[in-house]
């Protein structure tokens, strides 16, 4: 059960971040050429992997287990609550819905307006691709390290990230049309629920709590965050409707 939950959370969270990175690479590739977009993206992937290899073992191997859980839980809480906040605001109509396709269109328009690339290396395009993929990749790395930080959870977190990589690469190969059909806002809200549940679970364990039903606590914590999010969306959407009517 823990293996599946950790893998699903890692796959969904990593997949969404990878989709956002893909949108940037596609935009740079179409506007300025795929050779430079892929060069920038590849350099960013190498930088993120090296950073994770340098920091990860030191983070996961050198600390006391309770302290490690507290740190990991806190990082997951920061990510989870931010994703939940944005997801609730989007679902309630207080913020624009999330769409990698829209980001792709905006990025392409912005790059199209820039100075046209010459025959040589397009460093501006490479930099845009590098920055986008580096930031999204760093988030993938942090989430995978955090989810995989507890004993026995590194394998499912890595498998989840690998599954996400395969799926997102397949979407990239079939070009950008599938980006339009993904319910990204709902997916991000779901990831927020999962990360907040994992974050609360690990943080409490780091503080010496023993959860009733052990790892199954993840399920009732996820249920608690999901119900609270649903209630918050309803309440905020009602206020938006009332404000629009007056």
């Amino acid at each position: 059960m823990t293996f599946v939950l950790t893998m699903a959370a890692a796959a969904t969270a990593a997949g969404i971040e990878m989709l956002e990175a893909l949108a940037i690479v596609l935009a740079v590739g179409i506007a300025r050429g795929f050779r430079d977009a892929l060069a920038g993206a590849l350099a960013a992937v190498v930088a993120v992997v090296l950073l994770c290899l340098a920091v990860g073992p030191a983070l996961l191997g050198g600390a006391d287990l309770h302290f490690l859980r507290l740190i990991i839980g806190s990082i997951l809480l920061l990510f989870g609550l931010e994703w939940l906040r944005k997801g609730i605001l989007r679902m309630a109509g207080l913020r624009r819905r999330s769409s990698s396709y829209d980001e792709f269109v905006e990025e392409r328009a912005a790059l199209g307006g820039a100075i046209a690339a010459g025959a040589g290396r397009d460093w501006a395009a490479r930099l845009v691709a590098f920055k986008g993929v580096f930031l999204e990749g760093l988030e993938v790395g942090l989430i995978v390290l955090a989810l995989g930080g507890a004993p026995g959870r590194l394998a499912p977190a890595l498998v989840g990230a690998a599954v996400a990589l395969v799926i997102v690469s397949a979407i990239g190969l079939v070009l950008h049309q599938p980006l339009r059909r993904l319910p990204e806002t709902q997916l991000k809200l779901g990831v927020g629920v999962a990360l907040a549940a994992f974050g609360t679970f690990f943080t409490a364990e780091g503080l010496g709590v023993e959860w009733p039903l052990a790892d199954l606590a993840l399920l009732y914590l996820a249920g608690l965050f999901a119900i609270t999010s649903w209630l918050a969306i309803r309440a905020l959407a009602r206020r938006v409707t009332l404000a629009a009517a007056t």
């Binding site: 609360t200 679970f201 943080t203 409490a204 709590v209 023993e210 009733p212 606590a217 914590l221 608690l224």
Partner: peptide
């Protein structure tokens, strides 16, 4: 017993 729920 109750610390986790307080944190939640």
């Amino acid at each position: 017993a109750v610390g986790g729920f307080c944190l939640a």
